[in-house]
Design a protein around this nucleic acid. Structure first.
Lengths: 228, 228
DNA sequence: AATCACCGTTGTGTATACAAGATAAGCAAA
DNA sequence: TTTGCTTATCTTGTATACACAACGGTGATT
């Protein structure tokens, strides 16, 4: 058997490169404001400038970096307000997923959703926020897919990924894991019950809270800086 | 105003190229299924393969074309169902714009919105669908901007552009221009009045109709083909 | 006659070379 | 010392050259 499927060795390096660079951006290796020198990246990853450029263009068109003509690529200083805007849109997209999911979810998807939910419950009981965080992503993904709108799934997943680093900040927020799980419970109930309006409202609130927590965090940090 | 993004004096050809190729895709010069040969495009536009590749990658990451490793770029056969999915998301995004706009629109934006609306009215009275179509875009853009969510504006505008060719098909649909204008009127009223829920509902319906018209059109075409 | 293997061609993916603009340093003049 | 201009250098943007995988055709074998 030829294994083109199992082998991630995509013949185009720029794709792999894009993921690597993206990884370094969201993990803070390349913090906002960083200038991304093409030659430097090329040396780092052991390739020539060509694939690096292609990867950068790809990242730029997704909005992860900014490329100014003749002035290179930089990791944008995502203003806190910008992130809030993104959370605002995210809330609406997730709410839409929930609305459609409540109407369209199949029996097998119901099972999958409840499985994901129970997995979250286990992580909560074990008090392992990192695990919970991971399973939380699966949970939300299940809802996306239950919307039966492939385009919506793509858009929502993309934005979810892009907001990941900011959501991550909230892991330590007091009691967030617990309240998150309770919200999940209500969301699952609404979807299973087929109450699309309720699912919409609950999911919107669920995500909006995340945005607000983020805003709180930013405000706190600013005060902290100002006070020191 | 310093808007380097929309400054046409961009030294990077790939951006300009991307727009040119996009233009040819949405206008049907490169119909779905077309294989986009890099060398061929390079010759066509009088540049080398490098900028062409960069433009293609950019288009691919926005979803306008598909690139398979070692197998080149093709204009995807966007299934009708896919387009319907996109309209479904579009309806929600526009609805969100309307909801926020109703709450946040400034006096000067109110004026701009009404101006755009009256311009549409003139086009309707003159019975010039092409002009109406153009002004209709301005009208919607005004609403996007009134949402005061820059990220939302970007996302919505992008999807709007991507759906343009399919919306264009509806120009000739019977009476569409007239009913569109009437819907606009109600939308403007709701936004000015500050009734965000009403604006949401009206805009969602306004766009949903477009999606349904598109579905009707596709169905008609299919029957036509089957019957011939 | 049909099938499979081998080889040539075509076109993508990458590296390198070259051109041009932008930044920054150095020098001169006020 | 500061300001302005010139120039040097560095980085981006583009062209070209090369490597290699995929498709197509021809020929041999069953």
């Amino acid at each position: 058997m030829n294994h083109p499927a199992e082998n991630p060795a995509v013949t185009r390096h720029s794709e792999r490169l894009g993921e690597l660079i993206e990884e370094r951006i969201v993990t803070g290796v390349y913090p906002p404001g960083t200038r991304l020198d093409e030659q430097e990246l090329a040396d780092t990853f052991g390739v020539s400038r060509t694939p690096v450029r292609e990867a950068l263009i790809q990242l730029a068109s997704v909005g992860l970096i900014e490329i100014k003509p003749r002035r290179g690529a930089t990791v944008p200083e995502v203003g806190a307000d910008r992130v809030c805007e993104m959370f605002e849109v995210m809330a609406e997209l997730e709410a839409m997923c929930g609305r459609l999911a409540a109407r369209r979810i199949t029996p097998s998807e119901q099972v999958a959703l409840q499985e994901a939910h129970r997995a979250c419950e286990a992580a909560r009981d074990a008090n392992t926020p990192d695990i919970y965080y991971q399973l939380n992503e699966v949970f939300h993904q299940r809802i996306y897919e239950a919307s039966h709108n492939g385009f919506l799934v793509e858009q929502t997943s993309a934005l979810h990924r892009r907001l990941r680093p900011y959501r991550r900040l909230q892991l330590r927020v007091r009691n967030r894991m617990n309240s998150s799980f309770n919200e999940h419970q209500a969301i699952v109930d609404a979807i299973i019950k087929g109450d699309s309006e309720l699912a919409t409202a609950l999911l919107r609130a669920h995500v909006t809270v995340q945005g607000e927590r983020f805003a709180d965090l930013v405000a706190t940090l600013r005060d902290f800086k100002a006070g020191s």
